[in-house]
Amino acid sequence: MASTTSAPEEAPHSKRLPGDLAIWIFILAEMLAFAVFFSAYAFARAGNAEMFNLYQQTLNRNAGALNTLLLITGSWFVVLAVQAAHRDDNKGVSRNVALGILCGAAFLAVKVFEYAEKFGAGISLSTNTFYMFYISLTFFHFMHVILGMVILTAIWLQARKGAYTSQNSHGLESGAAYWHMVDLLWIILFPLVYVMR
């Protein structure tokens, strides 16, 4: 399906998992958690599709789409940062990580406006099952964006000291993998909660 891209430009090297094994175990556990949450949403909806469809219309789809663009772009900057590290381009690493953090901050800002509107309208976890899921899922993800930004900030501080090079990019790759996971989760979450009906 994803035949839009071909082999990467560098010469093919031996098979290697970027980043640390421990972070991947962690990523898998997180993804399992979201898989359970996504399925719970989908199956809870199946029992009450009309209600879910009705309240889905009240969500701010533009904000959701904008946030998707922000996370994708944030992820892209972080890939560029990893590539810069592989080229030993120190400035490139810190600049791109900083841009990634900015995208995350913009995501949070959009989300806060969205929440302010919903909570201002008196919507809470107890309003109905749809809003319960909408708030729980997006808030759980929100916390992950924050954690991702904390990790990226730690990496940025290291990057400014020139910690990441073609010889040593393990830490950067680990943080990048986590940040991409945050992106990946939103890519499922956005159509599921905001659009599909």
């Binding site: 093919p12 970027p18 499922i188 159509p191 599909m196």
Partner: peptide
């Protein structure tokens, strides 16, 4: 929409997480 989400997810996994050449 699911197909689109699937393609997007796969791109993130292969090209952003760089798992195309992972074990």
């Amino acid at each position: 929409m699911l197909v689109i989400a699937f393609i997007k997810g796969r791109l993130v996994i292969l090209d952003f997480m760089e798992l195309r050449n992972a074990p």
